[in-house]
Amino acid sequence: MITLHHYLLVSGVLFALGITGLVIRRNALVVFMALEMNLNAANLALLAFSRYKGFMDGQVLVFFVIAIAAAEVAVGLAILVALFRRYKTVSIDDLNSLKL
């Protein structure tokens, strides 16, 4: 029997993996992917709650998240391409010119 807890556990593990990826990876593309993983972990948790508690609000929210994530990726990838053209690198450790 698969319960809410199982879903939440998976969601948590996914989120933790995403955070780990965010922190340890240098390639901006991979960082993006890790970020997507975080979003999807959240989606999973929302869906699970929605299914088990019988509210539709969670499912609606997930649609929003998916839509916004798509837009965000479009913008993010565009920035990445622009950055690569300018600095010839996508390593986020080298992109620190905003630092004081």
Binding site: I19, L22, V23, R25, L95, L98, K99
Partner: peptide
């Protein structure tokens, strides 16, 4: 406080995770 602003995105991400 200025020294927290390292300019390293990964460090920010780490702090966000820590905060969470």
């Amino acid at each position: 406080i200025r020294h927290i602003q390292t300019g390293h995105t990964r460090f920010y991400a780490f702090l966000i995770g820590l905060g969470l």
